[in-house]
Write a protein that binds this DNA or RNA. Structure first.
Lengths: 210, 210, 210, 210
DNA sequence: AATGAATGAGGATTCATTCAT
DNA sequence: AATGAATGAATCCTCATTCAT
């Protein structure tokens, strides 16, 4: 019954505490945004006193930046381009689109928080916002690569345009779902979007060839 | 002793004060969101004491709801479908897309605030959020009408799908611009988007006809 | 028995509240210095909630600066140079020295706080410290005038030197009393000091004449 | 397993750590006073974690008391009465005055902290304050001895008076310099003061002889 | 129509200190 | 000899709101 005593509750375990705090913070920040996330609320949710949060993070901004960093890693892992066995390049892109949609349905906090952060404009830009832009940039490069891979005939300007458009559609559809709830089938919409972007790309390449 | 004094410096002008408050509130709420908008900040920006704000608005929530309502009206006026003299239905839709883009560039506060409001999730939904959903619904109907007008052959499901997609693209591109600043030409992107939606509609109609 | 209802307790009376806050703040800051003066303590002593203090003063620094300003005025009023009927210039200076000593015994808070403020060195100089230096400068000019009046033969360099020395002695004797309590007769020491400074001045003037 | 490891990187050197902590503490306490000195700040400055400070010192008060003790020793060493080869008793006292002035210019932290401590009045007197009074008392005796040595004809009351006055002048001039910065030549002022005290002593002795 | 003053609740953050390792 | 982690109490200050005038 006693088993191997995983942690002994009261004995200092920095790593685990840090995770508990981050878990609480994602949940709250993902729902309430930067200003709406109070340290007291995070403290209440993770069970550690507010002052302990300050042992692990310099300040609220640092905490939220860490939230972004961690959720991005999780998210990134979930959205790899599938291997060749998955079919044609388009097939593989469609599967990826579905995967991204699914990950956004299951863990919407990352993008929700990110979008709120991005929309806000305050006198002194918080570090967390900068961090979101950074990871966002990485994500964008990932998508650019996929576009280049699926539509190799496109020139760089077209790749950039399509990528921008692809991301905009994804963000917009995500927002739509936040509005309308489950009535929006995000997977379906993402695939619709992906096909449209693909077809547009094909047409652009064709026009270029002429 | 003094009689009914019609105007006179401090004798107040309710309407104007209300406008001043709203002007301050749009600016702040459009940049900082709901939680980030403090009555004190609005008071400082409009020059009226906080207590005066409470004379005009029941509470903070009421104020922000009023902000949404007013900016929506302004916005709505700016985005009429142009008259017949503007050319074919598609031409007219393209002009409208450009107009919407321009209005978002000039007055981004309305949509920025709306999106922040929509993304937030809090225990007791604020009235301002509901109001945003309401006006958003009106806007959606407007766009549905345009879709129906431009692509009369489409069935209702397709109209809804296209409308959803059209709005998503618009939101997404707006967000993109908030990220990347002026480097994104919103008018151009909106027209790109409009054409794409239109062509998709045409293809859907053709498929249906078969 | 009811009398003319001076204030009605709960009805807003800004001026009086401000005084109550300042009264509390002098007492505490005069004993504990800048860092030792907590808003909560001031609040407890004056009976107004902490948030009310912030209605009257921008922040703690502003409050303490106001404390300095007000106590300086009080102090200044107490230390006029007596009129001619008081005797020779020296007699009058001696009386003034005694008066200063008495005022410091009765209300030591002003100087005690000021000295603490002056001794502290922090990254960003608080406004209250600057204010103390300002009023201190005024006080110095006052004393310079007295020196000039009592020892008209002195050149300006000598006036400055004697003034510096006079103030240093006053400060030092005050500190001494803070150490040793009532065992130091401040009035007596101030007069001893005043006479010494005077005699030195006389000797300096004589030397100069040669 | 490892045996008694004599030194080895992290094997700690109690004495040195203690010194590092004290070094950091003098600097901070000398600038910010008792309340303004936080353990966290000392920790940051000396590089050791806060908990290590508590290994060396019982509590903050104990730390500051130790600061006083150590700096007093340093200070005391710097201000010996020069030997006979330095000239007449007055010459020697003048040299000593200059030395004291120099030591205060070079290491003002000791006296600055001490004066702040002395001026503060708090409910439960901190041990550090008591310690300052103790060392201050030792310093006072030293000076009394010098006065007695330089002016052997004086009675005890006069010695005490002159000593009090001498210290007051020293403190006051030190404070003056804290106010006005380098524009006050402390060495010069201390010698001016010393001469004045000496001459006063001579006159007092003469009066007594009569 | 407007406002000066007040206020309790809550905001982020720092404090001195402890304790198991 | 030292330290990572934790913690309750206190810090300054802002919040939305009220109310008598």
């Amino acid at each position: 019954m006693t088993g191997p005593r995983t942690s002994g509750k009261k004995r200092a375990n920095g790593v685990e505490s840090r995770q508990r705090i981050l878990d609480a913070a994602v949940a709250i920040a993902g729902e309430r945004g930067y200003d709406g996330t109070s340290i007291a609320a995070v403290s209440a949710r993770c069970g550690l006193p507010a002052s302990s949060i300050y042992w692990h993070f310099r300040d609220k901004d640092d905490l939220i930046a860490a939230v972004i960093e961690r959720s991005f890693e999780t998210w990134l892992a979930a959205v790899e381009l599938p291997g060749e066995e998955a079919g044609t390049p388009l097939d593989r892109a469609m599967i990826m689109a579905a995967n991204v949609a699914k990950s956004l349905v299951n863990e919407p906090d990352f993008l929700r928080l990110g979008l709120m952060l991005a929309l806000e404009r305050r006198p002194e830009e918080p570090r967390s916002r900068t961090v979101f832009f950074q990871v966002r940039h990485i994500a964008r490069q990932r998508i650019e690569e996929v576009v280049r891979f699926v539509l190799p005939q496109l020139d760089e300007d077209a790749v950039r345009l399509l990528t921008t458009y692809a991301i905009a559609g994804a963000d917009g559809l995500f927002v739509q779902r936040e509005f309308n709830g489950d009535s929006v089938d995000l997977v379906e919409m993402f695939q619709f979007h992906a096909r449209l972007v693909y077809e547009t790309g094909v047409r652009m390449a064709a026009e270029r060839a002429r």
